[in-house]
Write a protein that binds this DNA or RNA. Structure first.
Length: 897
RNA sequence: GGGCGCAUAGCUCAGCGGUAGAGCACCACCUUGACACGGUGGGGGUCACAGGUUCAAUCCCUGUUGCGCCCA
């Protein structure tokens, strides 16, 4: 016997274990079934489950469970990525509490410590995914730092290098002074800040008393200036182009150059050029073959190393000792000191308030410093071409399609990808340097040594590159490295290309772009056929969830409170295409009601001895009720299936919800109650068998979204052992004999009950008062229906009797119109005649109003001539129906007196 | 500045060339044989604005306004 209420916590723990231990989540490479593969976009190993994860993994799990039920060999590949910077940060913070630092420990000891941490805490998110009910193939779990995946990384690196698609270069990179590492463009976020625009006066060489005033937001980079640029069209500065300015504080002469980069409408129209510390200036420097001295070091502190020889004393403009004294100062102190000194020298013209975009490291939170360093780069532009083509040709399809524009925009304009990171935790770059700096790229040291031997003619000591690769480099290989590549495993051709990647649009540049490039390069085929982009999670008010706003909702708390099924169903119901998901406890609570509703319906059926009938054949049922609910179930199956096929989880959820609640519970069960009460009649036996069959369909339909409660009921009713619903077949529609007739009959009965209820409710007749229902002008067929459904009509329509009305409608009856039938409910002493009159008049007005609308449409000659004939006919029918209804209401009013 | 998206009931959102929908919230009634996490009924909308196409526009097109996001 089912408990009074469903207890999610207990069921969830038990069932997940059952599924996992029975191998229900496992893919089977040896099966004949068509594979269906979803690669989990691996969460950071440092991560813990947040609502965004809950959303994306619920979607993925629902898709996987659906496909598994349709008979596909489903592989949902789990794992985590090693999250270079994030993990190194976590462990360094841990070390700090012990009073240790990474540098003291040394690289090897530190890495041992990271692995130790990973062993202890790295499984956090994968444990939490289990609580979501995620049916991942756990024995296949991978980690981007696994030996196999590491081998894949090295192999790809060597392959790309051999083709010239990986190379070393000295370029400006986004440098994070806190981590002291390069980071990618995507890890930089612009923040609008209150800053200043300093107007600095640079003396013109040889023209005493003349200055050119440059406007800058970064006065501290002045020692690295190599030119002043003005727009070639700017008339104010024509005579200065080609002349030299004296760089204040430094004393060096710098040319005044003409360059489009300078915008005459901004500031003074003259800008200082510091190629080593600004991306735009770098480009100007290249165009004009300017030197590129760096004046900030890796900690973003002032260094004179590259400009020491150029300091010159110029009276009133530059005094070498000033800058020399500032060596080692950080960039913020440097700025203050330089501005103060310029002011003292009367070289500061003015300071304006200025809002500007300042790049910040998204993890460190500190301003990024463009820095000129030698790094490893990947030729993303070349790799992006086949990826763009694949999407253009439809070999990979975005759902919804519009996201391909975002993808194209990024991929067609992609910059060289800086793949080296000055970290310790990650895949160390497989490059070794000889004593003279010659580089040997190989999968291992032995390979490099062999190359070195060939190059030098004798053994030479080699030193491996200290840097590691960007985490995304290894994540980009995930769709094939997890399947064993570069080994030719049975899994590789079977599960690659994968079927669908599920993610949010903010990851298109990361996941999608990287995996497409790497997949096409290594496998010569796309990594996924479909990319399903869902919305982002927001709070109930539509705000982005963030720790600083304090509006973060912990999915595990929602699960504790309402159960996993309620959370999952809510997510499915709200995940429309191209819409963000606004989620809070209230909406989860309301969908928990649905879980409870299903539970209670099942409990009622159980109490009425409904159980699955082994050889039940839906095509053999005789009763209209049976035929009707089976037919309605067919529709629900079709809707749910179509919704899944088009990634419309909201439609899927609503189809399941409506069928279960509004068809099965609201009408079928209510109609079945009197039948059940008959005891052991053949009719009761049929309705019980049908009830069980349809409950089975419901459990199957809802299982992808609500795996636990459906699985419990599946077991309780004996559809199969508990834990086997996950492997059950997705329901299919079966032909129902004479479905149309059953639909017509049930629709009529439902209509009758609804009309009666509405009239009684509006007339404020208490449900405890039973009254006769009299049918005027009913056909023989309709009277037959009324007779067959007498019990439910009595029960649900609070009727003492239902009978045909031969003569006049009794005085004081409430009346309603159902098609050609006038329903009369004699309530002489109970109703307020004026209220009844008002009600009927309102109804009549509504009918007349509708009729008039249709009539005017039909009187439009162009409409009749040009509209589709069936539309015209439809409107003629509607007009007739409204007119008839109005006439019957009119008659009812007259009878009322 | 460029691009994308959104604007429909109090709220959250479906929808779609011809009849405007759901859930929640609201109001009224109801402990009717599972379910008050329930049942029944009800109120509530110039479908942002202005043009255009069409026999017909909430839907298609153009523009405007407002909001959101991404990129520079």
């Amino acid at each position: 016997m089912l408990d009074k209420t469903f207890a999610p916590a207990e069921a969830e723990a038990r069932l997940y274990k059952t599924w996992e231990e029975s191998g229900a989540f496992a893919a089977d490479p040896t099966s004949d079934a068509t594979p269906f593969t979803v690669m989990i976009p691996p969460p950071n190993v440092t991560g813990s489950l947040h609502m965004g994860h809950a959303l994306t993994f619920t979607v993925q799990d629902s898709l996987i469970r659906y496909r598994r039920m349709t008979g596909r060999d489903a592989l949902w590949q789990p794992g985590t990525d090693h999250a270079g910077i994030a993990t190194q940060m976590v462990v360094e913070r841990l070390l700090a509490t012990e009073g240790k630092t990474r540098k003291e420990m040394g690289r090897e000891a530190f890495l041992d410590r990271v692995w130790q941490w990973k062993g202890e805490s790295g499984g956090n998110i994968t444990r939490q995914l289990r609580r979501l009910g995620a049916s991942l193939d756990w024995p296949r779990e991978r980690f981007t730092m696994d030996a196999g995946l590491t081998r894949a990384v090295r192999r790809i690196f060597v392959m790309l290098h051999a083709k010239g698609l990986i190379y070393r270069d000295r370029r400006l990179v986004n440098w994070d002074p806190k981590f002291q590492s390069a980071i990618s463009d995507l890890e930089v976020e612009s923040k609008e800040m209150d800053g200043s625009l300093w107007h600095l006066r640079y003396p013109i060489a040889g023209q005493d008393g003349r200055f050119i005033t440059v406007a800058t937001t970064r006065p501290e980079t002045l020692p690295g200036d190599v030119a002043v640029a003005v727009n070639p069209e700017d008339e104010r500065y024509q005579d200065l182009i080609g002349k030299f300015a004296i760089l204040p504080l430094v004393g060096r002469l710098i040319p005044i150059v003409a360059d489009e980069h300078s915008d005459p409408t901004k500031g003074t129209g003259a800008v200082k050029i510091t190629p080593a510390h600004d991306f735009n200036d770098f480009a100007v420097g290249q165009r004009h073959s300017l030197p590129m001295p760096s004046i900030l070091d890796r900690q973003a502190a002032f260094t004179l190393t590259e400009i020491a020889d150029e300091l010159r004393a110029v009276p009133g403009v530059a005094e070498p000792s000033f800058l020399q004294a500032l060596a080692g100062e950080d960039r913020f102190k440097l700025r203050a000191a330089i501005v103060a000194e310029l002011e003292r020298l009367d070289l500061l013209d003015k300071v304006e308030k200025h809002r500007n975009q300042v790049p910040h490291g998204d993890r460190s939170g500190v301003p990024i410093e463009p820095l000129l360093t030698t790094q490893w780069f990947c030729d993303a532009a070349t790799l992006a071409k086949p990826a763009v083509e694949a999407v253009e040709q439809g070999r990979t399809v975005f759902v919804p399609k519009q996201w391909e524009n975002t993808f194209f925009a990024w991929m067609r304009d992609i910059e060289p990808w800086c793949i080296s990171r000055q970290l310790w935790w990650g895949h160390r770059i497989p490059a070794w340097y000889g004593p003279d700096g010659v580089v040997f790229v190989a999968e291992d040291e032995a390979g490099a040594a062999a190359q070195a031997l060939a190059h030098y003619g004798e053994a030479q000591p080699l030193a491996q590159d200290d840097d590691v690769l960007d985490t995304w480099f290894s994540s980009g290989l995930w769709p094939f490295s997890t399947l064993g590549w570069p080994d030719q495993t049975p899994e590789l051709p079977r599960y690659y290309p994968t079927d669908v990647l599920v993610t949010a649009h903010d990851i298109i540049f990361f996941w999608v772009a990287r995996m497409m490039m790497m997949g096409l390069f290594a496998m010569d085929d796309v990594p996924f056929k479909t990319i399903y982009i869902h919305g982002l999670v927001r709070d109930e008010r539509g705000q982005k969830m963030s720790k600083s706003k304090g509006n973060v909702i912990d999915p595990l708390e929602l699960i504790d409170q309402y159960g996993t099924d309620a959370l999952r169903f809510t997510i499915c119901a709200l995940t429309g295409p191209g819409r963000d998901v606004k989620l809070g406890p209230a909406v989860v609570e309301s969908y928990r009601s649905f879980v409870t509703k299903l539970w209670n319906a099942a409990r009622f059926l159980e109490m009425n001895e409904v159980k699955p009938v082994a050889d039940f054949d839906p095509a053999s049922v005789k009763l209209p009720l049976s035929r009707w609910i089976l037919d309605t179930a067919n529709t629900a199956i079709a809707e749910a299936t179509t919704a899944f096929e088009s990634y419309r989880l909201d439609d899927y959820a609503s189809a399941g919800y409506r069928f279960t609640w509004n068809s099965f519970c609201d009408w079928f069960i209510e109609f079945a109650k009197p039948v059940f009460a008959q005891g052991d009649t053949p009719e009761a036996a049929e309705v019980r068998a049908v009830a069980a069959h349809v409950l089975g369909i419901i459990l199957k339909l809802l299982h992808p979204a609500m795996p636990y409660v459906t699985e419990v009921l599946w077991g309780e009713f004996g559809f199969g052992a508990e834990g086997t619903l996950i492997k059950a077949n997705w329901p299919e529609a079966v032909a129902v004999p004479e479905a149309a007739a059953a639909r017509a009959e049930l629709d009529w009965v439902v209509g009758l009950i609804t009309e009666v209820r509405a009239v009684r409710s509006e007339m404020r007749v208490a449900p405890s008062v039973l009254a006769p229902i009299l049918l005027k002008d009913a056909s023989a067929e309709e009277l037959g229906r009324a007779a067959r459904w007498i019990d439910p009509i009595r029960r649900m329509g609070r009727a003492s009797e239902v009978s045909p009305l031969a003569g006049e409608v009794p005085k004081g009856s409430a009346q309603a119109i159902l098609g050609s039938v006038t329903i009369a409910i004699p309530l002489a002493d109970l109703i307020d005649l004026s209220a009844e009159r008002a009600r009927l008049e309102k109804e009549r007005a509504k009918a007349l109003d509708e009729a008039q609308k249709v009539r005017s449409k039909l009187s439009n000659e162009s409409f009749v001539a040009r509209a589709k004939p069936e539309v015209v006919q439809e409107n003629r029918d509607r007009l007739a129906a409204f007119e008839a209804e109005a006439a019957r209401l009119e008659a009812a009013l007259i009878r009322l007196g």
